[in-house]
């Protein structure tokens, strides 16, 4: 910066720094906003049931287990074609939020299980998971085992609550 050194210099010739400051401040604000947006980490926390022992049947808990299953066809961008089952019951996707809310009433602390058939698009499965979460279900266990292939009739064995 042009500072007056000694007494020889005449009038102080400071460059006009105001536009420079303006640009710096705007850049600073942009970076601050970007950092805040990037800091947010969104998603769903869940528990994986401990690895199920294949030889021993899962012990029956005192309460009925609720398993939500998303069935095909449920391709990318076609959320409306997804079929959702609450245990064995086929629930239309549009009525699912309401139904799961009713099912979850009085079971606030119970772990509910979520699974989807392998061919279901991941984003659509996440949207169903989002509906469960929005219905107030706090404890969601995601089943890591493949869904039995029988459509509608098959029993999805719910592992014990960890």
């Amino acid at each position: 910066m042009g500072m007056a050194v000694g007494r020889r210099s005449g009038p102080m010739a400071d460059p006009n720094v105001i536009p420079f400051i303006d640009i710096c401040l705007v850049l600073l604000i942009i970076f601050m906003i970007v950092v805040t947006i990037l800091m947010a980490q969104l998603g769903y926390e869940s528990k994986l049931p401990p690895q199920a022992q294949s030889d021993s049947p899962p012990p029956q808990g005192p309460v009925e287990q609720i398993v939500v299953r998303v069935a095909e066809p449920c391709q990318m961008g076609q959320f409306g074609t997804c079929k959702v089952f609450i245990n064995q019951e086929d629930v239309p996707i549009m009525q699912f939020p309401e139904r799961i809310k009713r099912v979850s009433e009085g079971r606030a602390t119970q772990t509910m299980f979520f699974t989807a058939e392998d061919s279901v698009n991941y984003e659509n499965a996440m949207k169903v998971l989002d509906m469960m979460r929005s219905a107030g279900i706090r404890n969601i266990g995601v089943l890591a085992d493949p869904v039995p292939v029988q459509m509608g009739e098959g029993t999805v064995d719910a592992p014990p609550v960890p």
Binding site: L48, M76, S119, E123, M126, D130, V142, A144, P146
Partner: peptide
């Protein structure tokens, strides 16, 4: 990735489950 199938994510979860971890979150 959103374009994957749930089966792919489930397979990854299976690997994680076999390693012993139970606390798993899905980022969206």
């Amino acid at each position: 990735d959103r374009r994957l199938k749930f089966g792919d994510v489930r397979t990854l979860m299976k690997h994680i489950q076999l390693s012993g971890f139970t606390d798993v979150g899905l980022i969206s």
